[in-house]
Design a protein around this nucleic acid. Structure first.
Lengths: 222, 222
DNA sequence: TTCGTCATGTAATGGGTTACATGATTAC
DNA sequence: GTAATCATGTAACCCATTACATGACGAA
């Protein structure tokens, strides 16, 4: 009955800040537009919307309300419901955006935080990116230790699994390094300033979201 | 009360097949030795063990039982419990190993399946790897489409998030390709046959587990 | 008029975590 | 003897999914 997930809530507020939407559309954006590789179902979305309304952060409005109140007064019976961010909701979202606790750089949270970096102040961006990086570096230490231990009683596949995981994290750290550097030197996304050099391979730009092969978004996106 | 997770169960059976262990140690192996980047807590492990015992797949034995029944008959009051795979358990695990349904190549499952590839027949390995690859290729299509759509109403960070996710998946596909090729030409893990060429960068070996920066194993591993 | 897709919801269930509670063993 | 770590377990909660139920609307 409570459904306060943090990440879903954050994403919903963030998307609605850009423009009002109804649930169905919201879910589609959630699963594709956002870089999140994660598919939320209606079973979590609608209850979440409900509690956000109860909090006073959203309002529900009948979708495309009848211009002529007589022509379609029944439309609201079970028509679209457009959700709109309230002033309090906006304020709340900005509070969330400003937070830089450890939550901000955990795997699940980092992606969504990053997705809204466009609306985040630069110093918060830096803290999140650096927090993320040191998080990953701790992880690297542990992985390297584990790998060293495993290497003795070697099992090819297990070993390779670990090795590859390690490499993936190393790769993400390099990304973060580039990103942090870009932030420091005040970039505006290489992609726009230098559209000339762009093959298939990465060149340097922003970060790296979270990793490799995520849960899969939008399985049934449409 | 039921706790039949699939992945946890599979991992437990697989680890116990190698040797009997008690829960505490099992958890450590689960979170480090295995290439899984996922930390299970006792809150899921112990109940799982219990149901596996009920299924008849495991037996519980008092750990290092008293040689002298008089010296330490009380040891069992709350001592270690060693879990051992039964014949039925072994059989069941082998059935699971042989399965190649879609479950085998979903994100969560693929990693653990791969970790036990050493005990998996080659044809099953091939099916799993190829299933995984085509799964990822579908995903690539969707991601590319989404990226193209997003590129218009560009938001630098969102765009980069998507772009990087895409690249990560592409990278995993390349890995799978190499792995599949290796399997086909009957390899024995490049690593052992050719220890000469080995810098920091990957060169070719096995797969890639699941991706980038997983949930983090062993936060409290020890 | 029926089919596909848009659209909103709920109840049951799942699969896990956290926090807690307890006790044994080892090292200092 | 006391602190750390090993070791087992439970209950309460969390966050989500699945399956289901309903209904509107447009196009063939």
């Amino acid at each position: 009955m409570s459904r306060r997930s943090g990440i879903l809530e954050f994403a919903v507020l963030g998307l609605l800040r850009e423009s009002p939407m109804h649930g169905y559309e919201l879910r589609k954006r959630l699963n594709t537009s956002l870089g999140l590789f994660r598919a939320f179902s209606y079973g979590s979305l609608y209850p979440c919307l409900k509690t956000l309304v109860q909090q006073g952060w959203l309002t529900e409005e009948p979708g495309t309300p009848p211009e002529d109140p007589l022509s379609a007064p029944l439309t609201g019976r079970r028509g679209k419901i457009v959700y709109r961010l309230t002033a309090e909701g906006k304020e709340h979202f900005e509070d969330l955006l400003a937070q830089t606790g450890p939550d901000a750089w955990e795997d699940e949270h980092f992606g969504i935080r990053f997705a809204f970096f466009g609306q985040t102040s630069r110093d918060v961006r830096m803290r999140v990116l650096e927090g993320r990086r040191s998080r990953l570096e701790e992880r690297l230490d542990r992985m390297r230790a584990s790998l060293a231990r495993t290497r003795e009683r070697l099992d090819d596949y297990t070993l390779e699994l670990q090795r590859h995981g390690l490499e993936s994290v190393e790769r993400e750290v390099r990304w973060l390094n580039e990103l942090i550097e870009s932030e420091r030197t005040g970039r505006t996304s290489r992609r726009e300033t230098a559209p000339e050099e762009r093959s298939t391979q990465d060149k340097g730009g922003l970060p790296r979201h979270r990793g490799g092969t995520p849960p899969d978004p939008s399985e049934d996106t449409d």
